[in-house]
Simulated scan of single mutants.
Amino acid sequence: MTVSQDPSAPLVVLVGITGLQGGSVARALISSDKPYRLRGLTRDASKPAAQAFAAQGVEIVSVSLTVDNAVNVRKAFEGADIAFVVTNFNEHMDKQREISEGKMLVDTAKALGVKHLIWSGLESLSTLSGGKYSRVGFFDAKSEVTEYAKSSGVPLSVVEAGYYATNIFEAPYALKKQPDGSYVFGLPIPATTQIPIIDVAHDYGLYVRATIENPALGPGSEVLSGKPISFGDIVAKLSEVSGKKITYLELDREAFIEATGMSDYGPMLSDMFEAFGFPDYGGKEIASESLLARKPRSWADFLTATPAHDLFQ
């Protein structure tokens, strides 16, 4: 239940420890009954989240994970037995940069002989849709890095995050307050469209921990996270728990793009949501909860654990 300082304990390097995914992985490993030395990478070691992990015994290293800083990235990974790596497309919105930085992390892990690389990947929506939905750069970029990592020969697990539960409230283009105080939740897909939803901060780390500790997984595994639920049920449960009137509205593509107020970003968002009409993860099986150290939250659990005044700000 604590971070080990024993040099015989495996050293796990965690990219983005102050982010939702990296922080979740850190907490999941800290709560394990198995010993780990943890090294968290962040650009800003002074962040409160970084300092909180440091107080628990995590080694915090400040490093920029860019291609032009590859020498220092390699130093930050030195000695790692296991590494969890993730890239952040939203920081730069550049598909080629996302691919280059992801490949750099793979190359670093391979060069240093990391025994188990865990990559936060995504499916290619371009491939799933036969090229119809080709604007979602961060999905396609992560998928390209996945294929690169597989071909590199590095001992690899891919752990895909489902749809963030918090996204429902961080999408002002979808959840809109009406003059009468009610809400409309509008997307360019039918209410029956399902997604695998996950409380990332609370549960994503469980899936990464399982790839490390569960004998059924390990290098070579692909772990898909989340609990399937339709957008209609998401809205219905949100209305029930919050006590607010919320109506799901299926928009056509043009109306949705106009609602985003972003002529450049809107088409990408529409492609992403429309591609959700394909089966979750392209029909691949979501990881069984029996593989995890504890049961992850459902959408209803997430809402119950999150006060309504925090959801509707």
Rank of each mutant, 00 (worst) to 15 (best):
A76Q: 06
D68W: 00
A54P: 06
N72Q: 13
P48G: 13
Q56W: 02
L29I: 06
V63G: 12
V71Y: 03
P35A: 07
A26E: 09
I30G: 13
N72V: 00
S64D: 15
A80L: 12
I60L: 09
A76D: 05
T42V: 07
S64T: 15
R74Y: 05
V58C: 02
R74H: 05
R27F: 05
Q56C: 05
R39N: 02
R37H: 12
A70H: 13
N72I: 04
G40Q: 08
G57T: 00
K34Y: 09
Q56Y: 00
S62Y: 01
S64W: 01
A45Y: 06
Y36N: 09
R37Q: 13
G57K: 01
A80Q: 07
A52M: 00
A55C: 04
A55R: 04
Y36I: 14
D44Y: 10
L65K: 01
R27N: 15
A52K: 03
D33Q: 11
A76Y: 08
V67H: 03
A45K: 14
A76C: 05
A28N: 15
A54Y: 00
R27I: 04
T66S: 05
N72F: 02
K75F: 02
L38G: 12
G79P: 15
R37K: 14
A80P: 14
A76E: 06
S64I: 13
A70R: 15
K47Q: 10
E59Y: 00
A70C: 06
S46Y: 01
P48C: 09
E78L: 10
I30C: 09
V58R: 02
A26Q: 05
S46Q: 06
Y36R: 10
A50I: 05
Y36S: 11
D44S: 12
R37I: 13
G79V: 08
P35S: 15
A52Q: 08
A55F: 07
V61K: 11
E59I: 00
L38D: 14
A49I: 11
K75Q: 14
R43V: 12
A55N: 04
R39W: 13
L29G: 10
V73Q: 03
A45R: 07
R43P: 03
A28L: 15
F77M: 10
L38T: 01
Y36F: 15
F77R: 01
K34E: 13
E78G: 07
S46H: 12
Y36K: 10
K75N: 14
A76V: 07
V58M: 08
I60N: 12
Q51C: 03
R37D: 11
R39Q: 05
V63Y: 12
F77T: 00
V73A: 00
N72E: 15
G57M: 04
Q56L: 11
T66Q: 07
A76M: 02
L41S: 09
G57P: 03
A50T: 10
A45F: 00
V61Y: 06
V71N: 08
P48Q: 14
E59R: 03
Q51K: 12
S31C: 00
R74T: 15
V61R: 03
G79W: 01
L41Q: 08
N69H: 03
E78T: 06
V71W: 13
P35W: 12
